[in-house]
Design a protein around this nucleic acid. Structure first.
Lengths: 204, 204
DNA sequence: ATCCTTCCCTAACAAGTGTTTGGTAGGTTA
DNA sequence: TAACCTACCAAACACTTGTTAGGGAAGGAT
């Protein structure tokens, strides 16, 4: 007996909700959350604006569901990697590869996250975005520090700068990545790792 | 004798315009263009919404001025670098350094550009954003190709992927960079170049 | 045949949006 | 003093926004 806070949906099939959330995510990603009107979402779904409210409480709760569903899947993958007890370099490799797989699967959600996370996390409802970001930083920074201590990563770099470098490098890819392109997520991860780890200059 | 298209401003001092554009840019960067109402801009400027229209034709033309002013300065710097006749590696180094200087000087404008450029460039008024992007890609990709031909950059990487890697790596910095921090633009450029060119792994 | 459930439509609402119009305080110029 | 210019305010405009309320069509269950 779920006692939802505000407006418990009477009846609504989860499949249809998923469908609508997917199209909503596409529109959000393409136009930006604020620039997206519920009428545009309804258009893309082939229905009228008011009809969306049979399935969802509000435009904001659509965004909420999209982002939290993505983050849940992301952390399922990350936690598996982090629990595997790999070395620092192998952990970074696994995290990057996993990240590109998530981009492949949740391209729209990632794009939305990239654009809106900073402003949203101020809102109490989206405070879990901040939590996630803290956890994220802990995982990556910790791995980098382990790598420096183990002498597999360079010690002469600002580690915080390195963290942002690696993080951004991976996730901005969502802005241009299109699934079904000529490179698989794994192939992109391989090339990115090659650049990040060994650089683009020829070794002399 | 300027014959402006729609609504030539009767009289308005350029200095005040600059001031207002700077505060508008800050709000745009912090909240996003669409989420920013003219009333919020007016609040930040200590005046009422309607008063902005003494200085500007529209909210859109404020954005236009902010972005084109930034791009003009950016290309002034880039063109100087590109005309210097440097080698490929030195050109990349100079471009990256110049980019971080621009981020330092136009943090807000860069942030706005990052968030809104893709959607804006569809609009005819902002088509110069597409032009700039094409020119941008030509400059960077060309330099990378010269570097591969001269055997100073690795030949085993997808060059288009490398381009996006380097480009994104540099410009996303605007999302977290704060002027007056502990690192100067030149220092950040130095570390970024070290990572991009030589990688973060220890050489064995 | 009746009821019920699911899913959507029609039509409106209040609040917020960018923008316009006319006015006006205060300084500069004549 | 009078005329004028600059920079703003006050109040409204037409429109778009997210959201709601009531209704109804289709189909399965009873």
């Amino acid at each position: 007996m779920p006692t939802n806070k505000k407006k418990p949906q009477v009846t609504a099939s989860p499949e249809r909700r998923r469908e609508l959330l997917d199209t909503a995510a596409e529109v959000f990603a393409a136009q930006g959350y604020n620039a997206t009107t519920v009428r545009k979402i309804a258009d893309a779904a082939g229905m009228l604006a008011g009809s969306l409210y049979y399935h969802f409480d509000s435009k904001e709760s659509m965004l909420d569901e999209i982002l939290s569903a993505f983050l849940n899947e992301l952390w399922a993958g990350y936690d598996t990697v982090l629990a595997a007890g790999l070395g620092p370099r192998e952990t970074i490799e696994a995290l990057v590869t996993e990240s590109f797989r998530e981009i492949d699967r949740h391209r729209a959600a990632v794009a939305i996250y990239q654009k809106e996370a900073r402003t949203l996390s101020a809102q109490p409802r989206f405070h879990y975005l901040s939590d996630s970001q803290v956890k994220f930083e802990k995982a990556w920074l910790g791995t980098l520090e382990r790598g420096v201590a183990a002498r597999v990563f360079r010690a002469d770099l600002d580690i915080r700068l390195t963290y942002r470098f690696v993080r951004d490098t991976v996730w901005v890819a969502a802005s241009w990545y299109r699934p079904g392109g000529q490179h698989s997520p794994e192939e992109i991860a391989r090339q990115y790792l090659s650049m990040v780890l060994d650089g683009i200059a020829v070794r002399t």
